[in-house]
């Protein structure tokens, strides 16, 4: 990630519609997928993505550059909107994202037990694992999103993974 490029992108997005279009094109799908993984319905996830970018459009000209990846700003808005969605009770049961059939039985069962284990972790542990492995964010993006340092991200991630591993091992017995 290149913060200078991000900064220039923000500037373009502030001054012109085409610049905002660039920002939209780079991040729409990432934000949509983030929402989909947490909500599990295309329509709702797209509604949230649209709301995130509406808010971004309203806020971009007030956005003050703070040497942090712009992705973190968008994910922060998305996190709030996903939380609103849950609070509103609008969701039915969250359908888990359908896992693809990779054709290898062992791997499938391993991934099933990993997902089951994940569900038993605390919200915070689940989220840092999701952000890292599912949303595939960069360290600096997660750090800015969660307002902490890159180093503490590794520490939190390591602890969460150890707990996940312990749960999975216990289940396997």
């Amino acid at each position: 990630m290149n913060l200078n490029a991000d900064r220039a992108l923000v500037r373009r997005a502030q001054t012109s519609a085409t610049g905002f279009g660039e920002l939209f094109d780079i991040y729409y799908e990432r934000i949509y997928k983030y929402a989909y993984r947490r909500i599990g319905a295309r329509q709702n996830a797209e509604d949230i993505a649209a709301i995130v970018f509406e808010e971004a459009l309203r806020g971009i000209q007030k956005y003050r550059w703070q040497n942090k990846p712009i992705a973190a700003w968008l994910y922060k808005i998305a996190a709030r909107r996903v939380a609103d969605f849950y609070r509103s009770g609008a969701r039915g049961e969250v359908e888990p994202v359908e896992r693809g059939d990779d054709g290898i039985e062992d791997k499938v069962s391993e991934s099933v037990s990993m997902r089951a284990g994940l569900q038993r972790l605390s919200e915070g542990d689940q989220e840092i694992i999701r952000l890292t492995f599912f949303d595939e964010l960069e360290t600096e993006e997660i750090a800015a999103l969660l307002d902490c340092t890159a180093n503490s991200i590794y520490v939190r991630l390591h602890r969460a993974l150890k707990r996940l591993k312990a749960i999975m091992e216990q289940e396997a017995k």
Partner: peptide, 12 residues
């Protein structure tokens, strides 16, 4: 497992 599982996700 954490690396391969997300790759097999089906997101419309």
């Amino acid at each position: 497992s954490l690396t391969t599982t997300p790759r097999a996700e089906k997101i419309p």
